[in-house]
Design a protein around this nucleic acid. Sequence first.
DNA 1: GCAAGGTC
Length: 764
Amino acid sequence: MHRVLNVAEKNDAAKSLARLLSKNSASMREGFSRFNKIYEFNYQLFNQPVQMIFTSVSGHIMNCDFMAAHKNWAQTDPVILFDATVQKKVTDRALDIEKTIKREVVKCRTLIIWTDCDREGENIGYEVINLCRPLKANLKIYRARFSEITFNSATRALANLVQPDERVSAAVDVRQELDLRIGAAFTRFQTLRLQRLFGFDSKQVISYGSCQFPTLGFIVERYLQRENFISEPFWKIAVEHQTEAGEFCEFTWERNRLFEHQPCLMIYDMIMDEPLAKVMDVKSKNKSKWRPVALDTVEMEKLASRKLRMTGKKTMEIAEKLYMKGLISYPRTETNIFPTEINLQPLVQNQANDQRWGAFAQRVLNDGPQPRNGKNTDKAHPPIHPTRYPDGQLTDDENKLYELIVRHFLACVSKDAQGDETTIKISIANENFNASGLIIREKNYLDVYVYDKWSEKELPHYELNQTFYPTKIEMAQGETTAPQLLTESDLIALMEKHGIGTDATHAEHIAKIQDRLYTKMNSERRFEPEKLGLGLCEGYDKMGHALSKPHLRAELENQLKAICEGRANPADVLREQIDKYRQVFIATSVQIQKLDDSMTKYFGPPGQNPPPPPPPRPPPSGPFGDPPQTSRNNNNQSARPQQPRPPPPARPLQQEQIRPTNSTGVPKCNCDADAKELTVKKDGPNKGRSFFRCGNNDNCNFFAWKDDVTPSNAGGGQRQFGDNQANSLRKRQQSDNDDDVKPRKCGLCKQTGHTRRNCPSLNL
DNA sequence: GCAAGGTC
């Protein structure tokens, strides 16, 4: 009988595939590796009986590295590493696996590759093929393509065997070689230089990597955005109403906020002239809050970070343990679609006796589990889900993560929450304000998914066209606030978005840049760069090669895709990329002073060992404060941040309306003379308020309130009144300030020929 | 002593 060697990416897959295809009749024996067993059974393949031998690797069994001659850091000029010979060979820890495969393949006529159907899987397949081909003449080689490990999928793969895809594998070879050459060259160069100049410990590696550096870059970029942030004031109008029954309702302005004080004040004045609110629209509609989509690795890490305060790395370690105990499915997956082959019923049933969520699981069983699926599939693994109920003790962390996975799973297969949303639109003096309320009808998934909140808000009843006087109309000042530092969840999302790392590795990159002392998680669990991270990013950014930005990696990713799809030749891509990075490397070594200067800012001048204490906290004058004096470098400018603090964005409207003033705070009028300060004498809300007019020309229409041209006084006003007071307030005179001015002018812009109602300045 | 990618 012919023998067929089948090799999967890991033992677990080999075991499951053998079990499914043999209908549970496979026998197991040991190989050389204690983790990778051999499973055997008879099968009908190509219309003839064969003996199937299933075994596995453990991911990659080979690694790409330099030859011994180039492994010595001190004796190798790093630039050579762009051209030095590299070789791929079996790693020490995979020697046992190699031995098993070599022993088994010589007994077989056919080799079938069952590695994961992604790019790395194809490459791992070729590692196996390259091991086997020299040992057996006329070995027939096939690739099994399967989207999940189920009977149907595996049977279909065997009935439709294809050839392995050399292009896909070649793309991975290109990536491996580039990552190695670039990583090693920059790491050795900067480590040796910074150790020598700034006295870092000889054991402290200052690494560069095409994933770790952009990850650090995200953190530094956000940090600098915060440091350089300039807050801008804004103004808004808030309306509140308390009904006679005592019910309370807050309305928000449809314009949200304005960045200029004057126009906001004009509108506010207009509203205060006629503060009668009219209900323009009352809408009520069903609103659903969607249950979560099936769980993939990225989402699990983000959730665990936000809800369990667990780092991505920790989460993956614990998930791995749960997986090894058979409690959850494979935790490294990009798939958030449940394959139709998976029977969800028994998986829900497993949870039905739990005290915490058993009753909910029972409800799901009664309705029939209906997963909410996302849009991604890696064609290798299902979404993360519980596979059985624990029968023994779990650690605290294991319990927490298992609970998260179960609750997410049950939520995903249950029903969306249902509610009724009411929105009320009112208009006051042609300005619109909205209020919205929510009543939850059915909590559904929210009953089990304790991580989501949906807050109810009840509104008073309003009738269409009803009018009322608000209890409070307030013009409030606020200011824009700086963006927050990144959480781990933010960081993972950014990496995902820019294609930095894979679902299996981003937690490792985040851990690595902390190990390297480039960044740390602060007490609020947000990432702030350390001096070393800031110095490195700033230095490289000044050189202008965007090494700390994600674009280079994204560009490589596009080229790899082109290789996979046959649009690009792997050798060409490799050569181009190596040439490009060699150039970047050379340019970097020419401009390395820029890195030294940035490092000097944080670690003091070079040549001192050990490094001096850090400079004092930067003064508020700039993002970094003034650089310390360097003994070697007289040109302090070079150590300054290259980007000066940007001026606040110009706001032309504001400049027209809030006039520049002279040293005593008096503005120029329209005929360019110093304006004249007057005070409102007439009784009314503005009595006693100072304003400016042209001092010498009746035809000059200039007017400005004094508190509008005095920056320290630019805040908003606040007025409160009850319904009974409204009449007196809305009768504010538009000519309060026009004591001695004829003819009457617009109360807003002080021009003649129109009134507040049709003032052109309201066309904001 | 270096990267990133698999996996135990």
